[in-house]
Design a protein around this nucleic acid. Structure first.
Lengths: 213, 213
DNA sequence: TTGCCCCAGAATGTATCCAATAGCGTTTTT
DNA sequence: AAAAACGCTATTGGATACATTCTGGGGCAA
């Protein structure tokens, strides 16, 4: 583990935060992380700054770093923003998706439908949505959307565990509608289906404030 | 200038970038900045990372830091995002604006109308819009919007200089419509007026690709 | 008993030094 | 003469050592 550049440290920590190994609110001590990676505290500081930019970590001067935590209203806001940004993003993506990407998207919809495992569901669902945006040019819009997905990942997991993937028939239908819009290159249809999908999720999530103890 | 914390350095650099002292594409050498602030390179590195998070500075590994630059399409995208986010933000802000803030907003509209100075116009216009969002809770949405305002500041200046504030009658009308919606607590009206305002600006800007040589 | 203050420990922030890398000019070879 | 390879220099990246700041606990006084 010789080249322990900040981006490498950040990537590992990002993985651990997204996978739930590191829970929101958990403290991140620079020295511990530095020891784990066999590096000094300097690259760790840089890595934490990078993650702060992703919204995954919250830094407080002279105090320390914590895994970011969302309040119920912040999570609600995140979904409101998703509702406005992701339809725009998918409309920019659709014209440029490749044949292999379209094929993978179709695969994902059926895989999502057949999985009973929560972690698999989360991974596949994330891949489906983010892949549907892969045709869009890299830029601010994609960064914003990815940042929202990152910061809300933990709460999606908590909600999935809570509901245990019950009543997911509607979700599957929505995914099919989105896919249909994509395959038919009907941006407007895909945008509307996606907007409905996100809005319904937002409303459902708002009914479970217990996720934000 | 004893306590040269990263945030202090970052704040000063931010000011200089926004005010145009530092132009997009300009290189930022760590040592120069460190010398200017009488600090070591360490806090400067942190400051640059902070500014990278704001989108104002672009860092390249083992190479250096430059003031961020937007392409024409990136700027266009920024306005598309504004068009979707700022109406949402203003709707969240309107219910919580204080009387003194409302008074200031009204003042600003007339001041903007009367100024002939470009720098004043930019400053007042920025204050008007950002103040109209001041009632919204701090959070992701406000951060996104402020980031967009920061990264596009230079191009607003360039455009203002180009047009020399001519044909700004429409702008003033739009500001009045937005203000009217705010004062009447008519969120829907304010959202629509704001959306039109941003969309028109976007289209107008797209007609001047020469700003992005 | 309670509130405040002070002190000690730990963690973060800063400075200096050394290593690694990229850019660029020169030189050498074909 | 042109192109490629070598080496130099300037700048950034990383590690270690030191200063500063925050937090928690204990003791003293009201």
């Amino acid at each position: 583990m010789a080249p322990s550049s900040p981006s490498r440290v950040a990537a590992t920590l990002r993985e651990e935060i997204l996978s739930g190994v590191l829970a929101p609110g958990e403290r991140l001590r620079q020295e511990d992380i530095a020891a784990r990676f066999g590096a000094s505290r300097q690259p760790v500081r840089d890595a934490l700054r990078l993650l702060e930019g992703d919204g995954l970590v919250t830094l407080v001067a002279n105090s320390g770093a914590w895994v970011s935590k969302l309040s119920e209203s912040e999570c609600y806001e995140a979904y409101q923003v998703r509702e406005r940004l992701e339809p725009l993003l998918i409309s920019q993506s659709i014209p440029h998706l490749t044949a292999s990407q379209l094929k993978r998207l179709a695969e994902l919809v059926t895989q999502i439908e057949n999985t009973k495992d929560i972690e698999s569901f989360l991974r596949l669902d994330r891949e489906f949505h983010l892949l549907s945006y892969a045709g869009a040019a890299p830029g601010m819009l994609r960064e914003f959307v990815e940042r929202i997905w990152n910061t809300t990942q933990h709460y999606r997991r908590a909600f999935a565990k809570l509901s245990n993937l019950q009543n997911s028939e509607v979700t599957h239908m929505e995914h099919k509608l989105i896919l249909d819009g994509i395959l038919r290159k009907d941006s407007a249809a895909a945008q509307q289906a996606l907007e409905s999908h996100i809005r319904r999720t937002r409303v459902t999530l708002a009914e479970h404030k217990e996720l934000f103890s």
